[in-house]
Nucleic acid binder design. Structure first.
Lengths: 117, 117
DNA sequence: CTTACTCACTCGCATTCCGATATAACGATA
DNA sequence: TATCGTTATATCGGAATGCGAGTGAGTAAG
């Protein structure tokens, strides 16, 4: 794990979900919003403001690149976005970081659970 | 898991780390800063601005309560904070939510790993 | 006596969030 | 062909949040 990646962390919930939605496949803006809603089972919804603010910054930071329109797409309005390999590395680094946080939380919350049982 | 807890989610990284630092024991402000640094192995550092902003809001939302000074404490300046049972529930809910996110991320990032191996 | 650490906290600028809103093409159906 | 719901992109601006610099004060070490 490169140290350079740590400069990007921690990711805000919005940024994390956007990167995650792009991990499997290229998506267009509206598709990202839907995917985030789906992934979180409706718990977390992204508004257009949050989406485009984040997208712009992610592009500036080279975590995401715009791949534009797809020839032969059913809807020519769509503009697709793709996770760069840097973006993928950052997502992986954040995932690893979060695993540590979750582990820590489980350990600390478990003490109480154990006492109660 | 009560739905009411979901209103508090998702937690910002700062808020999550503060709640987590208080999960095991009551801490004073400076102690929280140190504990967060320790927990994240120096990757994430909390400044006083972020800390006290968050603490105030957490107290308003009843996730944390101030327990004041400890009689016989080695340092009488210290003001201690404690996680409420609501705060504990929220931390647990967020932990569970994050586990889902991590699982999703692992699944999507794994495709690439498998190809590389 | 100066540097470093502990401890509390405020201030204010910068950043980010995020819903309301604007715009318009698309698909179905009346 | 009109018009309605949906898909789609994008901006705007107020609200919320982040967060370092600074203030103040005491203790310890060198």
């Amino acid at each position: 794990m490169k140290d350079a990646l740590r400069e990007f962390l921690p990711l805000s919930p919005a940024t994390l979900h956007i990167l995650l939605s792009l991990a499997a496949e290229d998506l267009h803006g509206y598709g990202i919003m839907q995917e985030v809603t789906r992934q979180s089972e409706g718990q977390y919804k992204l508004g257009p403001g949050t989406l485009y603010d984040n997208l712009q910054k992610l592009i500036e930071k080279r975590l995401v690149q715009e791949v534009g329109h797809r020839p032969g797409d059913e809807d020519p309005r769509r503009r697709y976005y793709r996770l760069t390999s840097l973006g993928r590395s950052v997502l992986l680094a954040e995932t690893t970081r979060l695993e540590g946080v979750v582990r820590e939380a489980r350990a600390r919350l478990h003490v109480v659970k154990a006492r109660r049982a």
